Simulated scan of single mutants.
Amino acid sequence: MTTEAMRAYGLDGLPVAVALLSLFGIVMARSHLTYWAGRGVARGARFEGEHRHGPAWWQRTVDRTARMSATPSARRGVALVHRWGPVAVTLAYLTVGVQTAVFAGAGLLRMPYLRFTLASVPGAAAWAVAWGTVGIGAVWGALALAAGSPWGLLVLAVAAAAVVTTVVTLSRRRREPQLAPPDTDLAPAHDPT
């Protein structure tokens, strides 16, 4: 295969255009499914407010979704969408850790679907290009480096362990209740009367 022909192919022999369109379709499907899940939670909450009684399975579903939508991540996503609107949706594609929260937050806030879609297209295109070119290249490069050298494999394993440890530590800290500072005055207040 010539160099020119090799440049036209990307992910494991796929033409670059097919790879980018596939990634674009995957990320659009994921974001829109998350948006519609948020819309479903919003509709369920509205329905629950109007109809206080229902079957037991419905009450369990409402309780489960209420717990999910009250997480710090969900609140952060709703706050971002509330403050920035469609711009938050577009930029969420270029972030790690808040994508799902922003997409679900757009659904929870019942952002009009056309507005969500128009904000999604440039973000999804940027995500597909980033992952279809630089992102996948970096992953394959790191794996090739690790496979070619035992030291490279060790460095990759240590980096992965550091990332996992950081994520676990941060998630545990978020789940722990914030303790108030201890009261320094241990003696009871003296009432002179």
Rank of each mutant, 00 (worst) to 15 (best):
F47P: 00
E48N: 10
E48Y: 08
G49P: 00
G49T: 05
E50T: 00
E50P: 00
E50N: 00
E50R: 02
H51W: 07
H51F: 10
H51D: 03
R52V: 08
R52T: 07
R52P: 06
H53P: 00
G54P: 05
G54I: 10
P55I: 12
P55S: 13
A56I: 06
W58G: 10
W58T: 12
W58F: 14
Q59N: 09
Q59F: 08
Q59L: 13
Q59T: 11
R60A: 14
T61V: 11
T61M: 14
D63N: 14
D63R: 15
R64Y: 15
T65Y: 15
T65K: 14
T65V: 15
T65C: 14
A66C: 08
R67K: 15
R67C: 07
S69P: 06
S69C: 09
S69Y: 09
S69T: 13
A70F: 08
T71I: 09
T71A: 09
P72N: 01
P72V: 01
P72G: 05
S73P: 00
A74F: 12
A74R: 11
A74N: 10
R75S: 08
R75D: 10
R76D: 09
R76Y: 04
G77W: 11
G77C: 04
G77S: 07
G77P: 06
G77E: 12
G77L: 09
V78D: 11
V78F: 10
V78M: 15
A79N: 05
A79L: 07
A79P: 00
A79Y: 04
A79C: 03
A79T: 04
H82Q: 12
H82I: 01
H82E: 14
H82D: 14
H82N: 08
R83A: 05
W84G: 00
W84C: 02
W84T: 01
W84Q: 05
G85K: 01
G85M: 03
P86W: 10
P86S: 11
V87L: 15
V87K: 05
V87H: 05
A88C: 02
A88L: 03
A88K: 02
V89N: 01
V89D: 04
V89E: 02
V89M: 02
T90C: 09
T90L: 13
L91I: 08
L91P: 04
L91Q: 06
L91V: 11
L91D: 08
A92D: 04
A92Y: 04
Y93D: 02
Y93M: 00
L94W: 06
L94T: 06
T95K: 01
T95A: 05
T95D: 00
T95S: 07
V96R: 00
V96G: 02
V96D: 00
V96T: 03
G97L: 03
G97Y: 03
V98T: 05
T100S: 15
T100A: 14
A101F: 07
A101K: 03
A101M: 02
